[in-house]
């Protein structure tokens, strides 16, 4: 689904690379947390998958596309397979909830009939069926993030990328968002979520990939936010096949 082979990303005019020889494989249907301090490279991973950036070294394969050799003409079509959610929602303030979700379908040329069916479905799925004519500023933060999620999944993407989607929300609202993401994951969408939220990661018991200074230091199947088992290097000594997953 997503594979990084020895990916290094150095931004221009910096000495230390943002990602340093990262190997990573995420399978279809997985729910993966990407944790680590600010500047550890979480966002860079997401940007590389979105192909907003190109790696300095190494290869990235997503959904059968080799991203390093994808022509820029094909990038838009590749991105139609991905859904993205951000901490700051990124809704269009002058469009209604319905139009915000419909916009993504309009700009990729979906028919009016398809939009009329898909948008209410997506809004119903995120629990905003009755609010399609509201404007974003009339909604709470949690509701705005639900709109953003509806927008991300309305085109039924194979992968959902979430960059700290609960960063601006209170714990109760965050829990609601996580339930929603879990439901989306259960329907077959691979979810990759970068987060700082200790509570959520500890509670969900999903695969956790921890980055420190651009290197993967931990990749646990059912991990918490903090290292609970032995560090990955120690771990590797006893169970190499597990650690290299």
């Amino acid at each position: 689904m997503i594979r990084f082979d020895a990916v290094t990303k150095a931004y221009p005019r910096t000495t230390r690379p943002a990602l340093n020889s990262v190997d990573l494989e995420i399978l279809k249907g997985e729910f993966v947390f990407l944790v680590g301090a600010s500047g550890s490279g979480k966002s860079t991973v997401l940007r590389l998958i979105l192909r907003e950036e190109q790696p300095t070294q190494g290869a990235i394969h997503v959904l059968g596309h080799r991203l390093t050799s994808l022509t820029s003409r094909k990038v838009p079509y590749y991105r139609r397979n991905l859904g993205v959610v951000f901490q700051d929602f990124r809704l269009l303030p002058n469009k209604t909830v319905f139009d915000n979700v419909a916009f993504t379908l309009q700009v990729i040329g979906k028919s009016r009939g398809f939009i009329q069916e898909a948008v209410p479905d997506a809004l119903k799925m995120v629990g905003l069926a009755g609010k399609s004519n509201r404007f974003p500023h009339e909604l709470s933060g949690g509701e705005q993030q639900r709109v953003a999620i509806a927008r991300a999944v309305v085109n039924k993407p194979a992968i959902l990328l979430a960059d700290e989607p609960t960063g601006n929300l209170d714990p109760a609202t965050s829990a609601g968002i996580m339930t929603l993401l879990e439901r989306i994951n259960l329907s077959g969408t691979t979810v990759l979520m970068a987060t700082h939220d200790v509570g959520i990661v500890d509670q969900m018991k999903r695969r956790v990939i921890e980055l420190i200074s651009g290197q993967i230091v931990r990749d646990e199947r059912r991990g918490g936010y903090q290292t609970q088992a032995v560090p990955v290097q120690e771990f590797a000594r006893y169970a190499p096949e597990e650690a290299h997953r």
Binding site: P76, Y77, R90, V107, R151, N155
Partner: peptide, 16 residues
């Protein structure tokens, strides 16, 4: 903002 979202959701360059 619109341009950013268009690029994110995969609107083609010609369309943008």
């Amino acid at each position: 903002r619109e341009l950013g979202i268009m690029r994110l959701v995969g609107a083609s360059n010609r369309f943008i």
